[in-house]
Amino acid sequence: MKHAEHEIDRVFDEKLEALYQESAREKPAAHIDKWIIAAAHRETANTENKKGNVNSWINRFRLPVSIAATFIFAAFSTHFFWPKAVRTLPGTVSVPVKTEDSVKTEGSVKTEGSVKEENLLKEYTETRLLHKEGLVDKDERAVKDKITGKKKGFSQDKRADKADVRSQGATGSGELPLKDNVSGKNISKTQYLNQKEWQKKIRTLFKKGETQLAQEELARFKQRYPNAIINEK
């Protein structure tokens, strides 16, 4: 066995291998050599660039700094832009306020809704006037329903209405069923007439001879406008 192995080695090492080496002269093309060496240069340069990038302090601190900046921005945004909670009185509920278009009138600015309410109130007052004169108004209930029906739509708590009415200085002296025809939202617009109109209305009542009603209105007027100058005569 060792003899055969020795013979194989001898043959390949001495003659056969030399013959093979003599015949085996193939080499890769020159462009392949250039391509491979260029690839070696390129990869080495890339590695150096990567090392440079890893070592730079900007890359080292980029991640923690960006995380910290994100947290700070979120905290400031929350503080300044988050809607604050509305503080309400105990027993009251905050509701969204309906924006109404304003209508210009003589010397004052009234909203469209307040004009409608005023008309309804005037109509109701006239109805009551007729009732006092003994003329039974068949449509009184209808008018009341019209007013109160309009108010039902607001779905307000009655206690809240009372509180709002009191806050406006109205005592509920009996002339107007305040809890029925006003709501906490628009009581300031509907409860009282314009000062001049109210005076005119009182004068009209006196002229018509409705002294009692006129006095009641005058009392209410004084209560509402205590500083107003009135010619009692």
């Binding site: 055969a4 013979e7 001898r10 043959v11 001495e14 003659k15 056969l16 013959l19 093979y20 015949s23």
Partner: peptide, 24 residues
């Protein structure tokens, strides 16, 4: 078959160029 190297002189036969090609 196991080749008995001692029985022939292979190197002598591979001198010619065609033998080189055949070897390859």
């Amino acid at each position: 078959d196991y080749y008995d190297m001692a029985q022939s002189d292979m190197v002598e036969e591979l001198i010619a160029e065609d033998k080189v090609k055949k070897l390859r």
